[in-house]
Simulated scan of single mutants.
Amino acid sequence: MIFDLWKQIKRKEFSPIYVLYGTESFLVNETKQLFIQNVLGEDESDFNLSTYDLDEIPIEVALEDAETIPFLGDKRLIFLNNPGFLTAEKTKDKVEHQLGRLEQYMKEPSPYSIVVMVAPYEKLDERKKLTKELKRTAVVAEAKKLGEHELKNWIVQRAKANGTIIDNEAVERMLALAGTNLFLLTSEVDKLSLYCNETKQIDAETVEKLVSRSLEQNIFTLVDKVVHRKVDEALRIYYDLLRQNEEPLKILAIIAGQFRLIYQVKELARRGYGQQQMGGYLKVHPFRVKLAAGQAMQFSDEELTRIMKMLADADYQAKTGGMNKELLIEMFLFHLHSGS
């Protein structure tokens, strides 16, 4: 687990070779920063930190650097980004790598360098001999999307690091409003901690008042208002989005995406899928699946089919110029509320 690796880095328990893979860019960036802060002394980055893009530079060139004695320091830190030879995914492959050179280095790594291979891929290719050897000899950590429980714990720990306490209701509200993007969540927790510097307590009311809503989250709330037959509040959110110069076609597309997700979640639930399975199958975060499942309970299959047809018709009319785009969405919301 990535957090176990963080503990090792902070304890300065280093291995000569690491493989950091996964698609959660926030965790990748945080890990890289932890390496820099804990491996290199103050002002050493200029001399003993190197970064190579393996889409552009052969690995043998980078390994020559790893075998160079550090200047004015104890260790060199080498980041090898985009090692496409470790995945089955299609990559740029602009250069040919002498992978035998890497295999040789793995057997006898430099005692004064730490090499971190940063693979921004969902999976490593377990069939490859090189991958198997790396998993045997190197420290391999996955920077994967956090589950709901991990996200909640992340928010709590981030607040704690800022010297504040956030209650459970506030954590739930933050995820509902800000979504699951760790970059955004970190920014929002830091902002709330600063605001609550005196009380040291973050509650749901403060979250509601201060947390920024993304366009997607605003539209999720809009749909939620319609689900609960509060069309006046849904329209108020819609008019606010227009005042913020959001494009009506984009708003319509995201509304359609949310109802498509509701429809898919309802169908997959009928087939016996769990939330984690749905998230993997639909390639969305399980927390979004959880919220969509709650909304799906408010609609029958017939209603959802009718709504999807209404959205398709609205999209066609908007793109063919048959009607004012702003009015189209307004009419859709009224019809959705009335059930006509």
Rank of each mutant, 00 (worst) to 15 (best):
I2F: 03
F3K: 06
L5A: 05
Q8M: 12
I17N: 01
Y21W: 13
Y21D: 03
E24P: 03
E24M: 08
F26L: 07
L27Y: 01
K32P: 08
Q33A: 12
L34E: 08
Q37Y: 04
V39C: 06
V39G: 00
G41V: 03
D43Y: 10
D43S: 15
E56I: 11
V61L: 12
E64V: 07
A66L: 02
P70V: 03
K75M: 13
N81R: 09
E96P: 06
H97T: 05
L99A: 11
G100A: 13
G100R: 11
M106W: 03
K107N: 15
E108I: 09
S110Y: 00
S113C: 03
I114Q: 00
Y121K: 05
K123E: 11
V139S: 04
V140M: 04
G147I: 06
I155C: 02
Q157K: 14
G163R: 05
A170M: 04
L175S: 02
L177F: 11
T180L: 07
T180V: 15
T180C: 15
N181E: 13
L184N: 15
S187N: 15
L194R: 14
Y195H: 11
E208N: 12
F220L: 06
F220E: 01
F220Y: 05
D224Q: 15
H228P: 05
H228V: 06
K230P: 02
L242S: 04
Q244W: 05
E247N: 08
G257T: 06
F259L: 08
R260Q: 08
R260F: 05
L261V: 01
Y263T: 14
Y281R: 14
L291Y: 00
L304D: 04
M310Q: 08
Y316E: 11
N324W: 05
N324F: 02
K325N: 11
M331F: 09
F332C: 09
G339E: 04
